[in-house]
């Protein structure tokens, strides 16, 4: 235990109490949480600022609207049905195609129209919402995996999590779905978490189920050094979207789509700490550097390069 404690202190690992007391509690005013807890509001915020997000195919905030929603879905074969206020990826239903018998879910399982109707109703009843209040069922276009990432992805869409503190990117990782994560980009369920050198956008180090890995468990391809596509743009929209919210400690989730490039999936006001494991680096020194170097009214490009410099110091140290 003592050895672990010393190591965590040496690396500047941020713990849950430290994150809550020093960052989320201080940097994120409570009243701004609804902006990011409700994905429809986040989407509207991004649209207003011209920041790309996945296309919204429809939504239903009342049970009687489900029928209309299903009618609209008849024109689409590939979509994602999810709760607007869901947490931790719960309640997300991914439909990847259809045939005469009905819809096909990611991973090949079939799903009937009835099951989709029930899922939408469960969402509206607040089953997946934070706190269990009524929620909105929203349907988004299914994103396409960027060709550069296809060979290190299995059955799903990888995303990139960027931690932004006071408008400056501090750390980033990508979450690569595996067959054991069932196509989900969720580290708890067995997705690979890969740290990103934010100067270059190259993968530095990766973990899967809490253990360091060198290769993607499905394709057996080496991960280290592999570049992520359009990473500069990823950082840019992450910071721009965060600027719209007024929040100061945010985890931005971004997908690099094959057709549209980087799009904002969602923002998180209480981002988790696994990004440190994926990067094999602590957040604490970077956040402290940001506090030291922060000046009001820095332009966007300057803030991004500042974050990259801080990241560089961290890698060199």
């Amino acid at each position: 235990m003592k050895a672990v404690l010393d190591a965590l202190r040496r690396e500047g690992i941020l713990g849950i109490n430290g994150r809550n007391a020093r960052y989320t509690l201080k940097a994120n005013p409570r009243r701004l949480y609804p902006l990011v807890d409700d994905k429809l509001r986040t989407k509207q915020l991004c649209l207003d600022a011209g920041i790309p997000t996945p296309a919204l195919l429809g939504s239903a905030s009342h049970h009687f609207e489900i029928r209309d929603l299903l009618v609209r879905l008849e024109q689409h074969d590939r979509f994602v049905l999810k709760p607007a206020r869901g947490a931790m990826g719960n309640g997300i239903l991914v439909v990847t195609g259809r045939d005469e018998k009905g819809f096909v879910r990611s991973g090949g399982r079939r799903v009937t129209v009835d099951a989709i109707r029930y899922h939408a109703a469960s969402i509206i009843s607040g089953l997946y919402a934070l706190g269990g209040q009524n929620d909105v069922a929203m349907v988004e276009e299914l994103l396409q995996v960027h060709p550069d990432l296809v060979e290190i992805t299995k059955d799903g869409v990888p995303d990139i999590r960027v931690i932004i503190y006071r408008g400056i990117p501090a750390m980033a990782m990508t979450r690569l779905p595996t067959s054991s994560s069932g196509g989900r980009a969720n580290l708890h369920q067995g997705a690979v978490g890969a740290g990103i050198d934010i100067r270059t956008g190259n993968i530095t180090h990766a973990v899967c189920k809490g253990r360091p890995v060198r290769r993607h468990p499905d394709s057996r391809l080496l991960l280290r050094g592999r570049p992520l596509p359009r990473f500069e743009e990823v950082l840019e929209i992450a910071v721009r979207a965060t600027d719209q919210t007024g929040l100061n400690y945010v985890g931005a989730d971004i997908v690099v789509d094959a057709r549209y490039g980087p799009v904002i999936l969602e923002l998180n006001a209480r981002p988790g700490l696994a990004v440190q494991v994926a990067n094999r680096a602590g957040l604490q020194p970077r956040l402290e550097s940001i506090d030291r170097l922060w000046r009001p009214d820095r332009p966007l490009a300057e803030r991004i390069s500042l974050g990259q410099e801080i990241g560089e110091v961290a890698y060199d140290a």
Binding site: V4, L5, I13, I16, N17, A21, H205
Partner: peptide, 24 residues
């Protein structure tokens, strides 16, 4: 409530930092 140090669960979760860097 003002304790901002590590939880025991943090130590377990981040225990890999105490191991040698063996993957480079």
């Amino acid at each position: 409530g003002a304790y901002t140090g590590y939880r025991v669960s943090d130590l377990i979760r981040f225990r890999s930092f105490a191991q040698e860097r063996d993957d480079s």
